[in-house]
Amino acid sequence: MTNVARYWEEIGVGEEYLSPGRTVTEADIVNFAGLSGDWNVLHTDAESMKHSLYGERIAHGLLGLAIQAGLSARAMPRPFETLAFTGLRWRFKGPIRIGDTIKVQVRVKEKREGSMPDRGLIVLSRQVSNQRGEVVQEGEMDLLIARRPTQ
């Protein structure tokens, strides 16, 4: 195995990763509307949106959140031995438009032992920015990561 997942002990506070970019297309928005069932005109009605403050359709905020998850996976050279994703604090700061190219920067913010001996907590901070360097979304995620088995 070349891509062995890392235990809690092997993850260091301050580690940082930058993902490749991904251009968000009209197809992404249509697919996300279909999957989520969120057909809000903000994302699906080009004619109404011409007269809105955005001037055009924008991506669902949660589509940005989904895409950054995939980008993060591509940013990290080795995945974590994740047992559970327990919490998320997230801000949608600006619109993602059709044609925008977004990237995510991931940083290990915090590391704590948990109440269970076989796992520890990792807090990741993530920042999603567009091709102009504007931060469009950012937040933190709480992950429970397996500790290296003793024996």
């Binding site: 069932g37 905020g61 998850a69 919490g87 997230w90």
Partner: peptide, 30 residues
Amino acid sequence: LLGPCILSGLAYRTGLSVKVLAFSGGEWKF
């Protein structure tokens, strides 16, 4: 993260429909 995605669509089917200009953020517990 599939949860928030499904939830956002279901939210429109509760009968509580509001004119959303922007989704500003939130705190989730899984």
